[in-house]
Each structure stands twice: as structure tokens, then as C-alpha cells.
Lab assay of single mutants.
Amino acid sequence: MGFKLLSKLLVYLTASIMAIASPLAFSVDSSGEYPTVSEIPVGEVRLYQIADGVWSHIATQSFDGAVYPSNGLIVRDGDELLLIDTAWGAKNTAALLAEIEKQIGLPVTRAVSTHFHDDRVGGVDVLRAAGVATYASPSTRRLAEVEGNEIPTHSLEGLSSSGDAVRFGPVELFYPGAAHSTDNLIVYVPSASVLYGGCAIYELSRTSAGNVADADLAEWPTSIERIQQHYPEAQFVIPGHGLPGGLDLLKHTTNVVKAHTNRSVVE
């Protein structure tokens, strides 16, 4: 069995187990497998329904001669939608809004960016022009300005110390501490036991640490421990890039980060 097929099978099995364990909360999309990078042309966006009122959005972007996937989250909030992270750029984010209108038909009224990198804030200006209120932590807003990236308009308070959590509509926002970046936030959907790890969490097929220019490698494993301790009931975990899975993604990420750190020390 090929690795790609095995990865998709694991996603399907995880979703099936969740649907059985929580039949009222989960209505997993039966329309197909989780979209992969090879299936999404740059400039297009796919939506994948995880649970009743919960979707991931998947886009792709060219970077350094390669094409990478990027995940975000959409959560229903009454007759409105909360968006977590842009679709990595203005063109993708405009396509995301169009796809949401086509498939869901509810307005996106608020959006949260989970850290300051372009795959999370690139497209904020498109959201703002569409009347979406954009939010991020003060740290993310400051770092985005320093980096020359787009800056969300509103500040999220109460997320300055490791372990801080605040309720934001249908989700809980959690600051686990520094990891992929010093400002990275985690998003949890309690009604569906869905954990969105953003770039602080890796997919299972990833074996290298990737972009760690703004990471705190020493603190990252401790931050992941905080996530595990705060959300032990999480059933569906979405990484910032690639295929979702279960809580095993947290341990896998820790292993990859520690291996990278150990290699760096040896070198």
C-alpha cells in the first residue's frame, strides 16, 4: 500500500471513529477524501466538511520552486461564519470567499490569524475590503508590521502568557507558548472536538522541520505538551499544512522538532 493511500485511509478511519463516538456532533463529509496538494491548482481553494458547521479550507501556493498546501478553518456561528487564517495570499483568499459563498452561503463576518507569517495573514486586506472584521493577538499584529505583512485590524486580548485561553464565538483560542513562531495560536472547536494546530503542528508525513527561522526550538516541545494537557479530548487535529489526523500529530511534531534540534547540535 502506497504512503499517500495509507495517509488518506488514516484520515478516513479517524473521521469514521469520530462519527461513531459522537453521532450528534459529527456529520463528516462523505463526498470524498481530504484534498491534497496535487489536486488543488494554485489560485483555487477546496472546502472539506469535518463536522456539522465545521470545515477546513485548503489552498496551495508556490514557494521556492515548489507547491505547498495550506489549511485553515471555518466555523459556523449562528447565521454567520468565523474564518481562521487566510488562504495564503490575496488571490487565494478572494477564491476562498467565493467558494464559501458557493458552498455554504453564509457571510464571513470575523477572521482570526493564528500567527504573523504570510500563509496566515496574506489576504487580510481582501477580507477587510469584503467587510470582514480581522483579528490577531497584539504580538501577531506587531510582528506582521515588522515583517511588512498585512496586519489584522483588531487585537485579541488575554493571550499574552503561555497557557492563556479565551473564548471567541464558537471557538476557544489558546496560546501554548512559542513553537513554530513566538505568537502562534491554537484554535479548538469544543462542539466538535476539532483542534486546529496551525503551523505549530505537523502532518504525519512530514519528517523535516522546514521553516524554523522564527521558531523557538527549545520551547516548542513544552508548548505541545500544554496543548495535549489542555485538549486531551480532541479527536480531529488539523495541521497548518497537509493531512489531518488525531492527537498523534502532536507527538510526531515533537519528535521531528527534537530530531532537528539534535542534528543542529551535532553539526
Rank of each mutant, 00 (worst) to 15 (best):
M1V: 06
M1Q: 03
M1D: 00
K4D: 11
K4V: 06
K4L: 05
K8D: 13
L9Y: 14
L13N: 08
L13T: 15
T14E: 06
A15V: 08
A19D: 15
I20A: 12
L24D: 15
S27Y: 10
S27M: 12
D29G: 11
D29I: 10
S30C: 08
E33Y: 09
E33F: 09
Y34T: 08
S38G: 11
E39M: 12
I40S: 07
V42N: 14
G43R: 07
E44C: 07
V45W: 02
L47D: 03
Y48L: 13
G53C: 05
W55C: 04
S62K: 08
D64V: 08
G65W: 06
G65S: 11
A66M: 15
P69D: 15
P69N: 15
N71T: 05
N71K: 05
G72L: 01
I74R: 02
D77C: 04
D79H: 09
D79R: 11
E80S: 10
E80Y: 06
E80C: 06
E80T: 10
A87V: 03
K91L: 14
K91G: 14
N92L: 03
N92H: 03
N92M: 03
T93C: 02
A95F: 15
L96R: 00
E99V: 15
E101F: 08
K102I: 13
I104E: 00
P107R: 15
T109Y: 08
T109H: 10
R110V: 10
R110W: 09
V112N: 02
H115N: 06
H117V: 00
D119P: 01
D119M: 01
G123H: 03
V126Q: 06
V126P: 02
L127E: 00
R128F: 08
A129S: 11
A129E: 13
A129M: 11
A130G: 09
A133P: 10
Y135S: 01
Y135T: 00
A136D: 03
S137R: 05
P138S: 09
S139W: 11
T140A: 06
T140N: 04
A144T: 07
E145Y: 14
E145W: 12
V146A: 14
V146H: 13
E147I: 13
E147A: 14
G148E: 07
G148V: 04
N149S: 12
E150T: 04
H154R: 08
G158N: 10
G158S: 07
G163W: 04
V166P: 03
V166F: 07
R167Y: 10
F168V: 05
F168I: 06
F168Q: 02
E172F: 03
E172A: 03
L173C: 04
L173A: 03
F174S: 05
Y175A: 00
P176W: 00
A179H: 05
H180Y: 07
D183L: 02
D183K: 01
V187L: 03
S191V: 09
A192K: 10
L195Y: 04
I201H: 05
Y202L: 15
L204Y: 09
R206T: 15
R206A: 15
R206E: 07
R206K: 15
T207V: 13
N211P: 11
A213Y: 08
A213C: 08
D214K: 05
L217T: 09
T222Y: 13
Q228A: 13
Q229H: 12
H230V: 09
A234K: 03
Q235F: 07
I238K: 00
H241Y: 06
H241P: 04
G242A: 04
L243K: 15
G246I: 04
L249W: 02
N255S: 12
V256E: 02
V256H: 02
H260N: 10
H260P: 10
T261H: 15
N262R: 11
R263S: 13
R263P: 14
S264K: 13
V265W: 11
V266D: 14
